[in-house]
Structure formats: C-alpha cells, structure tokens
Simulated scan of single mutants.
Amino acid sequence: MKGKTKTGFEIEVKDNALDNWELLELWGEADKGKPSALISAMKMLLGEDGYGTFKEHVRSLSNDGIVHATLMSEELSSLMVSITNGKN
C-alpha cells in the first residue's frame, strides 16, 4: 500500500501494516497522551528507515531545521488519510 502526504512525501507500507493489534495498542496509548507511544507506532508502521526519512521530510518543511511536533502531526494525519483511502 502506498501513502502520500499533501506536501509530497511518499512511502510504501506493507499491505497488512494496519492489521496489527500492537499498532492499535500504541495508537491507544498515544491517544491517552503518551507521545512516546506515537513514536513507536510510527516506527512500527513505517519501519526505522521510513521513519527517519519521514522525519527528514518534516524537517525540510520548516524554516529553522527543526522537526516541529505540529508539522509532524499534520504530516502523519495526511499520510494516514492517504493510506486508509488507498486501502478501499
């Protein structure tokens, strides 16, 4: 399955990547306000290399070279929408 953010970041994830109970557990922990769970979930979904590439893409969107949490969140939301829409 392919995902693409509104800003042009593209990545391919395994077809069964979203069918992972442990990933759902991590999303649940992130929803409870545990940001480290979100990081772990992203790494599980994208893989270590994909996560690093994603982070560098987000860094490239900022004017100061910082991976801003707000930008990371916006890009992740955009990516997840594109993945779930492509799954249909």
Results as ranks from 00 to 15, higher is better:
M1F: 08
M1P: 07
K2Q: 07
G3E: 01
K4Q: 13
T5Y: 01
T5W: 00
T5D: 00
K6C: 09
K6P: 06
T7N: 08
T7H: 01
G8E: 07
G8I: 03
G8M: 07
G8R: 07
F9E: 01
E10G: 01
E10D: 08
E10A: 05
E12T: 10
V13K: 00
K14H: 13
A17H: 07
A17G: 03
A17S: 08
L18T: 06
L18N: 03
D19Y: 11
D19R: 12
D19S: 15
D19P: 08
D19H: 10
D19E: 15
D19F: 09
D19G: 07
N20W: 00
W21S: 15
W21M: 13
W21D: 15
E22T: 11
E22L: 13
L23A: 09
L23E: 00
L24I: 11
L24C: 14
L24E: 11
L24S: 15
E25H: 10
E25K: 13
E25P: 06
W27D: 08
W27K: 14
G28L: 02
G28D: 05
D31L: 10
D31M: 15
D31E: 11
D31Y: 14
K32F: 11
K34F: 14
P35N: 03
P35Y: 04
S36Y: 11
S36A: 15
S36P: 02
S36F: 12
A37S: 07
L38C: 09
L38F: 06
L38A: 14
I39C: 08
S40Y: 09
A41P: 01
M42H: 09
M42K: 10
M42E: 11
K43A: 03
M44F: 09
M44D: 05
L45I: 03
L46R: 03
E48Y: 11
E48P: 04
D49K: 13
Y51I: 03
Y51M: 03
Y51K: 02
Y51D: 05
G52M: 09
G52Y: 03
T53Q: 12
T53H: 09
F54M: 01
F54K: 00
K55S: 10
K55I: 11
E56A: 08
H57E: 02
H57L: 02
V58L: 05
V58H: 06
R59D: 11
R59N: 07
L61D: 01
L61T: 04
L61P: 02
S62G: 01
S62C: 01
N63T: 13
D64N: 12
D64V: 06
D64K: 10
D64T: 06
G65C: 04
G65Y: 04
I66N: 13
I66S: 12
V67K: 09
V67M: 03
H68S: 14
H68W: 13
H68V: 05
H68T: 06
A69D: 08
T70S: 14
T70P: 06
L71S: 12
L71T: 14
M72N: 04
M72E: 15
S73D: 11
E74M: 13
E74S: 11
E75C: 02
E75N: 04
S77I: 13
S78L: 00
L79D: 00
L79A: 05
M80H: 04
M80P: 06
M80L: 15
V81T: 05
V81C: 03
V81S: 05
V81L: 08
S82R: 01
S82F: 03
I83V: 10
I83C: 02
T84N: 07
T84F: 09
T84V: 08
N85A: 15
K87Y: 12
K87L: 13
K87E: 08
K87F: 12
N88V: 12
